[in-house]
Amino acid sequence: MNQKHPAESLQQGQAEIAAAARPGRRKLIQAGLASAPVLLALKSTPVLAGNCKHPSGFSVSGNLSATGGKNCATRFPSINDWVKADPGLWPSGYPRDTALFGAALTAGAIGHDADIGTFRLIDALNDASNPLNAKAAAVFLGSFNSGPPSFSVVQALWADGVRGGGYATLGYKSESAVWHQTEVEKYFDYLLGLNP
């Protein structure tokens, strides 16, 4: 039978627990310090350079694990950025004054099937009647320097998800979703920093 006061007994018990936990805590801290160079080495590699999610991560996580909140840590250049950009800043092979939207995104712009051979990326950036055309052009152009996603993923999102039967994302453990126009536009908004 314990003759000590209950408060004293409680303090002694807590002290014994804390003393027993110290070696474990030291090991944890030492392990953390030992792994710091490994983490620093990983951080400097291109593997961690991407600050935007791929479509598979965006669809599976519901955009909750984005590095900068609900948008990329560094957004893609905006529609207006591309409209005002020096023509020399446009990606090689896509001259500002001549690059066709349909050729670049492998499918025509919404509402411009009749002029697919003349409707340019710069026209899409200024298309107030169909804002998704402008978003697609900005994301496509930005994918060359700001991705992921790569330009080929943007092409597939447009051709399959917006203009076709659906874009199939392939996520963690083979979880997938099929995106159509609404989902593709949400993803473009995420890349461009337009999410609330």
Results as ranks from 00 to 15, higher is better:
Pro55Ile: 08
Pro131Thr: 07
Ala124His: 12
Gly111Trp: 14
Leu121Asp: 04
Trp158Lys: 09
Ala103Tyr: 11
Gly166Ile: 12
Pro148Trp: 00
Thr182Ala: 14
Pro149Glu: 01
Arg22Glu: 04
Gly13Lys: 15
Trp179Phe: 09
Ser35Ala: 15
Gly32Cys: 07
Ala156His: 11
Phe140Asn: 00
Ser150Phe: 10
Phe76Ile: 08
Lys186Met: 11
Ala36Trp: 06
Ser92Leu: 11
Asn145Phe: 06
Pro77Met: 04
Pro23Asp: 00
Ala99Cys: 07
Phe144Asp: 00
Arg75Ala: 15
Ser176His: 11
Lys53Trp: 02
Leu132Phe: 07
Thr67Ile: 07
Ser143His: 02
Pro87His: 06
His112Met: 02
Ala124Phe: 14
Gly13Asn: 15
Trp179His: 01
Gly108Trp: 10
Ala31Asn: 12
Asp113Ser: 15
Leu100Gln: 05
Thr169Ala: 09
Ile110Ala: 03
Tyr190Trp: 10
Val38His: 06
Tyr167Val: 05
Val38Gln: 03
Thr182Met: 09
Lys43Cys: 10
Arg26Pro: 00
Thr118Asn: 11
Ser35Asn: 12
Gly108Asn: 14
Asn133Asp: 10
Pro87Asp: 05
Lys186Ala: 14
Arg96Asp: 00
Ala103Asn: 15
Ala137Tyr: 07
Arg25Pro: 01
Leu33Ala: 03
Leu105Tyr: 10
Thr169Ile: 12
Pro87Asn: 03
Ala73Asn: 00
Leu33Phe: 09
Pro87Ala: 14
Asp123Lys: 09
Gln181Ala: 14
Lys27Phe: 11
Ser146Asp: 01
Leu89Glu: 08
Leu89Pro: 00
Ser174Ile: 03
Asp86Pro: 08
Thr98Met: 09
Arg163Cys: 01
Val184Lys: 11
Lys4Ala: 13
His54Tyr: 13
Glu175Phe: 10
His112Ile: 02
Trp90Arg: 08
Arg163Met: 13
Phe58Gly: 02
Thr98Cys: 07
Lys4Val: 03
Gly166Arg: 11
Leu191Glu: 02
Asn130Leu: 00
Leu157Glu: 00
Asn195Gln: 15
Phe140Leu: 14
Trp179Asp: 01
Lys84Phe: 06
Pro23Phe: 03
Lys84Arg: 12
Lys43Pro: 00
Tyr172Leu: 14
Lys27Leu: 15
Gly93His: 04
Gly111His: 11
Thr106Met: 11
Gly164Trp: 13
Gly50Ile: 05
Gly50Ala: 14
Gly147Glu: 06
Ala36Val: 14
Gln155Val: 08
Ala41Asn: 06
